[in-house]
Design a protein around this nucleic acid. Structure first.
Lengths: 325, 325
DNA sequence: GTGAAAGCGCTAACAT
DNA sequence: ATGTTAGCGCTTTCAC
């Protein structure tokens, strides 16, 4: 390449990055030669010498989860304006693989890692944070040692869901809970507290989805056996299981049963009836994560934990309870 | 690191990769030191000197498309057994961004790129193929100049769908077609030919989903206005639009309308009624793509084009047509 | 305005 | 069995 333009490689480097101190003629000649050869600088070599790659790694548990991918959209948007390239690594719901993928990103000298996964071991995160800025999105725990976090207020979200149902006149409001993830636990607590505050403590009915793949289906069936007039589900997928089960049992939604989901994923706007769901500001969350990485790169050393407020999106799956005959 | 173990860096390199020619004592000492320091070799440096990174790039148009992500699962599985790490770049349905992401992967010296996107410009692909093995998945065009392809037989899939509906007794079988992508066009041709072979030429009714975001909805509405007894949709998402529209118009599926989708994504097993759909062997396709990259790395120079046979998965959205009163 | 030289963290070939 | 040297493709001083 340097030969093609008849100059030294230092000049090539300068010219290609638009440095001022290159004469116009030479610059043009170099650009022309680069074009002719289809030359592109090598990220490996550049990263090695600069110590920065301008790559942001995103670690995902589950590609099929729209909540996750929508956070990624936020990351990508913000990364763009910062001139970063986003590369994703995927853990396929497997802790060992997740750890391995995180390691792969770090060995690549990514400038930061955004983790969108509740499955990564805290130890692995702390380790990673020693090598690059790490931001955890969507997991309501505080990590020590350099791991920043962006979450939504799961408790407030759960309370908003319950309040909405109570305002419609529901009293037998059941909860379909998830696995033992922190977010799931917090939503469940929020549900319990809201029910208590409304004086509906004795009405509380909770079922948990286990790790079993058909857990949602089974838990939904068990929950409906208690004949609630409304269900608050830990997420949209769980809400879908409730809708499906209600359909199978001939229970009309929302006439005989109201259902509220969480996350407000694309699913909520796809199922019939359209699902009332608690929305997390996913794009904003992804953007904040990038901002935090950039701050770290600029020298911030204290941890930052941002908690955003979710909002309820009301659709067609909730209504006043049927007046009992 | 070399200092910590009191040996030269060559020995560290050898020991960490388990080379035989390192004495057991030294090896142990090096491993211990590495453990103590949390040392991990640097992919940038290693890739630079070796000319191989053991990274496979996957270029995606659309993270939200389950067909795409399921192909990725196949890629990841095969990559695993080959010792490759999979990194994904995302184009967000934007041609310019797609080209940029492809470039980013190549600059990283990935050992190969699997493209799961109908949107990448052929020129960009041919260019890329000059720099690394490139395999295009799911796009029924042949590219010249080193781009391998893995596709399913869209024509056969469309024919299977139409045949299934005809065997149930349907004659007014409409088709909801997609944008001007090659896959969409081929499915449409397959539909037309199958209808012809069955002597139903005069019954053909086709509507096309434009680029408009609400195009599916509108096209479905227009299609149903022709009062078909069955619809073959270009993909599961389009089929969902038909189901939704049918629901809105009070048309019972499958009693009054049969619907067949394509791709057999998770969606097909989620919607109500469960969707009859043409299945593409996505995992196998992803695996084949990796195999093709490996072959190229081992020296293959002729292009390879693999076409897999799709299979119809019959669920609850298709049935005999109502006998007309 | 341009080139020469050093070095990023590794591996590979060649000593010893 | 271990150390030394060169060099991967770039950027970055520093001279000229």
């Amino acid at each position: 390449m340097a030969a093609e333009a008849g100059v030294s490689k230092s000049l090539v480097s300068l010219a290609l990055r638009g440095d001022a101190g290159v004469s116009e003629a030479t610059g043009a000649r170099i650009l022309a030669a680069a074009e002719r050869l289809g030359y592109r600088s090598n990220t490996l070599a550049r990263g090695l010498v600069q110590g920065r790659t301008m790559i942001l790694g995103v670690l995902l548990t589950d590609l099929a989860n729209p909540y996750h991918t929508e956070v990624v959209a936020g990351v990508e948007e913000a990364a763009d304006t910062g001139g970063f390239t986003v590369l994703m690594a995927h853990g396929r719901r497997d802790r060992a693989r997740l750890a391995h993928q995180l390691d792969a990103l770090l060995r690549l000298n990514v400038d930061g890692v955004v983790v969108v996964s509740s499955w990564v071991e805290p130890d692995a995160l702390a380790d990673a944070a020693r090598r690059a800025p790490v931001v955890m999105v969507g997991r309501p725990e505080r990590f020590t040692g350099g791991v920043d976090t962006v979450t939504n207020d799961d408790r407030a979200g759960a309370e908003a869901a319950v309040r909405h149902l109570a305002e419609l006149g529901h009293e037998r409001i059941a909860h379909l809970s998830g696995s033992r993830s922190p977010a799931s636990r917090t939503r469940r607590e929020g549900y319990g507290e809201a029910m208590g505050a409304l004086g509906l403590d004795r009405r509380v009915a909770v079922r948990e989805i286990g790790d079993d793949p058909r857990g949602g289906e089974r838990a939904a069936e068990a929950l409906l056996a208690a004949r609630p007039t409304a269900v608050f589900a830990v997420n949209d997928l769980a809400a879908l299981a409730v809708l499906d089960r209600a359909h199978a049992e001939g229970i009309a939604v929302p006439e005989e049963l109201s259902v509220v989901g969480y996350d407000n994923t694309a699913l909520a706007d796809t199922v019939r009836p359209r699902l009332t769901s608690v929305d997390q500001p996913r794009l904003v969350m992804g953007g904040l994560a990038v901002e935090m990485v950039v701050e770290r790169l600029s020298g911030r050393t204290e941890d930052r934990h941002e908690v955003l407020t979710p909002s309820l999106v009301i659709r067609a799956s909730t209504a006043r309870p049927a007046t009992e005959g």
